[in-house]
Structures are given as C-alpha cells and as structure tokens.
Amino acid sequence: MAVVSVKDLRKRYRAGDPWAVDGVTFELEAGEAFGLLGPNGAGKTSVVKMIAGLIHPDVGSISLFGSHPGNPAARAQLGFAPEDPDFPKFLRASEILDYFASLLGLDEAERKRRIPETLAFAGLDAERRQIRQFSKGMKQRLGIAQAILGRPKLLILDEPTADLDPLGRRDVRALIERLKQSGVAILLNSHLLSEVELVCDTVAIMGKGRVLKEGTMEEVVPEGRNLEDVFVELFQAASPKRDQLPSFIDEGQSR
C-alpha cells in the first residue's frame, strides 16, 4: 500500500481565482524520496499542506496511510517540516519539543530519551533562549527536529534548507539518506535542484498548479544533463524576460 496517494487534487483559495493546484496525482511508497519542484506559486506548498491535513482540497482525494489526512491517527505517522516554520514565541526549544511530544502521545520516558537527542541533532541542545529570539535558521532546524520527533513513516520537508548554512544542509541531506534507508518515505519540496537531484528517487515538476513532468530521476533528467537544465527548459518559454536589468542600475554606475 502506498504511504500517500493523491488523486486529481484541485484547490483554489477564492472563487473565480485560477486553480492553485489543478489535477495533481501521484503516489509515494515506503523508502522512496519524492521531489516536488516548481517555480514560486506553482502550488507545491498547497499540495503538501493538503497532505498534512492543514488545508482541504476542493476536488480530488488524498489517502494518508490508507486514511483521510484529517484523521489524527494517520497524522501520528507523519512528520511535517513547514516552509518558514514558526512556534509559540515565548517557549524554548526544549519546551516546544516537549509540547509536540505530548501531542504525539509519547510517554515521559520516551520524551526524556528523544528530546535531548533531537535537540542535539538540531544543534539546539545548549539553546536556552525563547523562540522569539531565534534566527530563521534556528527556527528551520527546530522545524526539522519537531518533524522527526515522532519517528514518522512519512516525512514532508517543505523548503527544509532554505535558511540553513552549508553544514545544516549537509546534515539534512544525511538525515534524508538515513531515513530513506530505514524505510521512511520522504516528500521533499525544494528550489535547490542540485539537492533534489542528490537525494530523490522520483520527481514531479509543477507549474501553475499542474504536474508538467514526472518520473524517476533517470526518466526526467536525460544523461549528460542535470535537473536545472530540464527545469529551465520547461519554464523559460513561459517566464518573462529577466535578463534585462532595470535602467536605474546602469545610471548609478555611470555617475
């Protein structure tokens, strides 16, 4: 059985608006790393939020571990690291993990074992400040930490490395590899194509809410080329010309 199965998913945020997600279908198996790519506004985050039960599709269906994403039992097996994660700002990192461990139903012994290790993995074990004093990178690391706390069978990472330094990115790549080997399904939503190419087995490229290209990495990226070439080719024709700088930039240089 697929870990997550998405069929003909459609979503729009206001009546009359174009579809933010328009007929997306895919499946994800245990131990598979699936990359969801696309330019800004392609609908990637809407798709992962629907899978996590945070927003509701207008049309289509989602099966998460054979159940509806609204079912808490299904979400117990899900780890979700959102894009630009944030947390109750007057709590500390250890309190956030304890809070979320309670929501996951972990008993005290398990909380005492997992929380320090997870904080150490995120490099936040010595951090005593409240979340409101955290940098974006620290919040991102905590976002990943809370996502793996419940030992999920499906880990959704929405732009997980956007605010991380190179060391943090390396750690996330290593985490994805380790989790894949232990049978965890990964859904990675990222703009960093080189990263996706390194860790993902299958990939779907979205544009304007639709899946434009989908398949294994070998199917999508022909030999001798890379994912960035394929991506640019797909969107270059449709995107506005961005090679011309605003005129005032040159004015500044000539003075």
Binding site: P72, R75, A76, P82, P85, D86, P88, L103, G143, Q146
Partner: peptide, 11 residues
C-alpha cells in the same frame, strides 16, 4: 505566526 502549521500537522 505559522505555529499552527506545525501544531495541526500533529495528531
């Protein structure tokens, strides 16, 4: 703040 995104993805 978006904290609800992490909270509501939990069971």
């Amino acid at each position: 703040s978006g904290a609800a995104t992490s909270i509501f993805s939990k069971p």
